[in-house]
Structure formats: structure tokens, C-alpha cells
Design a protein around this nucleic acid. Structure first.
Lengths: 223, 223
DNA sequence: CGTCCCCTTGAGTTATTTCAACACTCGTGG
DNA sequence: CCACGAGTGTTGAAATAACTCAAGGGGACG
């Protein structure tokens, strides 16, 4: 796992990078950038690394990761196609971002974004709004982590994911049980058992471990 | 507990409100607003309420509260003197804010803040930065809620609080055990037991339940 | 002096974790 | 084509951290 810095520093154009694209970060806010491919589990940026870019998922899925010195891991968010991330406005990243599956990611230099925000108040407002939306999502998640049971956490996770994903009969999970567990503050065993229980209770069907069908009763779950 | 809307709607100038002050929201960003007093446990704004104002704590302490329909409560953050809050940029608040103790709060109309941000790119950047800082704080807290033990949560809480507070020998807690528990995702009994344990282990002294002295060993706790 | 609120402590319960074993899938290479 | 191993997911049994329920202490205040 080499960092992005190293990649584009040593081999510009490697990794399938394409320059000169316009990336739409918010409705009506298109910025000059380029796209890159990342393999499953590849690091997109690292904790402590300088935040020189902002990112948008074109395809695939990304996880934000924080790790404690003894290895305990917390995933702060999953970013799916269309989501913007890495927009915390600090000098350095406080967490790392990794590709959950093979991804195509658009990158825009922070300097480009800053200039756009400076020149266009409306654009600045929209970009700020993206940060604010992230904040609200995190607040929801805090309630989940602090006060919900394992069953509620998993149910919420499924409902929220399905609402962010193009409507289709089956929801497919790009992430492993381990990722889900570290997102929900549980162990993989508890996540697995909870899926089994939801299936026994006819709240979901599981054609395979990465493919889930949500039944009506789950849609009513307290989000 | 009446809402802010009702208060200033029905009785402008009540509650000790004073108009025409300049409030410094970020370094170098002063906005026209006014101050109000809130009593202990009084609601400053409510969930679902329109976000017409942004706020700054002049004195006292404020808690952000989310409640589940069955009464489970999660406190998202405590705001102390000098902190800005209510800056989520959405149309409505997604949580409520309440005075932990008697407070003096500065209010600025969102329209005033928006205009300032529109006219001055640097100011907009600083205000955005406030939102970004909140985001980072929440991310830290998520790791705490998802992956830390009761002992670690309480220790982190004390260390973080003491680092935000003017240096003094004893740290005084404006909030009750119940507030701390709902902030840390624990019960009041567990919080109380953990304080007792920290004192037995000579990590803190507790002259009274709201006054804590942190010893060196605690300062080294993994934050 | 009594009441209310908050905090502490003890004992028993429980949800979740831990530890351990096993099943399934998917490449790779014999 | 099958054997093998690594990675991933499931399940069971035992352990435990935190919760629940219950009782009592102590300060503030009328």
C-alpha cells in the first residue's frame, strides 16, 4: 500500500490517471481534476498526510478508517458512487481512506477548490453544505453507536444503505462483515448472527452473504 | 420549556436580550447580533425547528441532544464558553440544544452570517473551518463510542474537557452524571463507578462530585 | 424537619464479546 | 480435474463488560 503522494509523485499518469477532466463536486460546481483507479484495499490517502486533494467516488466504494494503537478500528463512513469525501478543510487528514472494492476516484486539487470558493459565493455555499451534510450524517451515526442495540444497528445500516443506492430488488454489499462490524461498533460474529436472525425473522433474505433483499417489515425500522 | 421562537416572538427584549452587539464568530469575523440568558435545562433551539440563528456561548455550557422515540438520549457535544454552535447550514435543526447551566448566549441571524460569507471569501473560509472542526471532533467521538471501554471513555472525556478549559488545578464539571453518561454512551451507574475506580487508582481526586483533579497518569491516557 | 434531586454502591442479569471450530468460495498449481 | 491454502462467513459455548434493579447517602431548599 503506497500513498497517493508517492504514486503521483513517482509516476504521473500511472494507475490510469487522466488529467484535464471537469468534475462536478456539487450541483453546478464543476472543477478541473482527473480520475484514478484504486484496487480493492488500496489506500487513497493516509492519516497525517497533507490534505492536498478532495475526492469524488465515480464508481466503487470507499471507507474512512481510524485506528487505535492496539489495532481497534472504527470506520467513520462509507462513500458510494457520487459521494464527495476528504473535504474536512484541515491541513492534514485525521483518518485514512481506503478502497472497499476496485474504484474509480476523481481528484481535484484543494487549491483549485479554494479558488473556486473564493470567486463564487454560491459555489462556496454549496461546498460548505457538503461538509454540513457529512456532519449531520455523523451525528446520526453517533446516536446509533451510543444508544442502539446490535439488531437496530444492523437494520439501520441496511435501510440507510438501500436508500442511498439505486433502487433494485436486491441490495448488494460491497463491504465485508469486518468492515460492517467496524462501522457499527460490533464484532464480525455479532454482525453475522444478526444477519442470520433477521433472515430467520423474515425481515430479509440472503441469497448470498453479499446480496440482501429487504422485506417490508425492515423498511419500517426506526432509523 | 418554550422554544426560542416563541420567546423572542412574544416578548422581544425579554430574557435579558440585548440587541446591537458585535459577536466575534471566528478570528476576525465579527457579526451583528445580540445576547440572551438561558436558565439551566432551558431549550435554546429544538429539533425540527428552523435554523434561523447561529449561536456562541459567552458563558455557561450547552449540550446538543438527540432523542429516540423510546427516550434513549444521546448528547452529541458539549459547548463551552467561546464555542460556536448551531452552524450546520441546513434549513432545520436535526437535534436540540439545551443549557447545561445558566448561560449567556450570543445569537446572530443566519441571514447576517450568509451575507458576510458571500461578501468576504476569507470570512466564508473561516466559518466553513468551524464546521470542519466540528466534523473532526465528531469523528474522534465516534471512535470513542464505537471502540472504547467505559474506563477509556471517561478518561478521554476528562482529558479532553480539561484541555478545552482554562488551566486550573481542579476541573469543574458543569454537567450531571446523566449528561456525561448520555454523551459517552454509558449509564449513570457505570459513569459513577468509573469515577470511583479512577480515584481508587489515584488517577484523579474528587473533592466533590462536580470537582475533579486530574493526576499525571491520566494526562497520558490515549485520547 | 422533610422532600427532592443527584450520586454512589451492591447484587444479579444480559447483550455482546471472545475463543474455537467448521463451511464455503475462489484462485493456483500439481 | 482435483488438492490445497488463504480469505471470508457462520455457528456454538463460555466469559465478561456493562446494564438493570434496588437501596441508601448527602446536599440544597422550602
Amino acid at each position: 500500500m503506497q500513498t497517493l503522494q508517492a504514486q503521483i509523485g513517482s509516476a504521473p499518469g500511472a494507475n490510469g490517471a487522466q488529467a484535464g477532466k471537469l468534475i462536478e463536486f456539487a450541483p453546478g460546481v464543476a472543477l478541473a481534476g482527473f480520475t484514478m483507479r484504486f484496487e480493492r484495499n488500496e489506500e487513497i490517502f493516509a492519516e497525517e498526510e497533507e490534505a492536498d486533494f478532495v475526492y469524488k467516488v465515480m464508481s466503487g466504494a470507499v471507507r474512512d478508517v481510524r485506528i487505535l494503537s492496539d489495532g481497534r478500528r472504527q470506520i467513520g463512513a462509507f462513500h458510494l458512487a457520487g459521494d464527495v469525501f476528504g473535504l474536512e478543510c484541515g491541513e492534514t487528514h485525521l483518518y485514512s481512506a481506503e478502497a472497499v472494492v476496485d474504484c474509480e476516484i476523481a481528484l481535484v486539487r484543494r487549491s483549485v477548490l479554494d479558488k473556486a470558493a473564493d470567486q463564487d459565493g454560491a459555489a462556496a455555499r454549496k461546498l460548505w453544505g457538503l461538509t454540513a451534510r457529512d456532519l449531520q450524517t455523523l451525528q446520526d451515526h453517533m446516536l446509533l453507536l451510543g444508544r442502539k442495540t446490535a439488531l437496530e444497528r444492523v437494520a439501520c445500516f441496511l435501510v440507510r444503505l438501500s436508500s442511498r443506492t439505486p433502487a433494485s430488488a436486491t441490495l448488494d454489499l460491497p463491504m465485508s462483515r469486518s468492515d460492517i462490524a467496524d462501522y457499527l461498533g460490533l464484532t464480525i460474529e455479532t454482525v453475522s448472527r444478526t444477519f442470520t436472525q433477521l433472515e430467520r425473522d423474515r425481515a430479509i433474505s440472503m441469497p448470498s452473504s453479499r446480496h440482501i433483499v429487504l422485506h417490508n417489515r425492515l423498511a419500517m425500522a426506526d432509523i
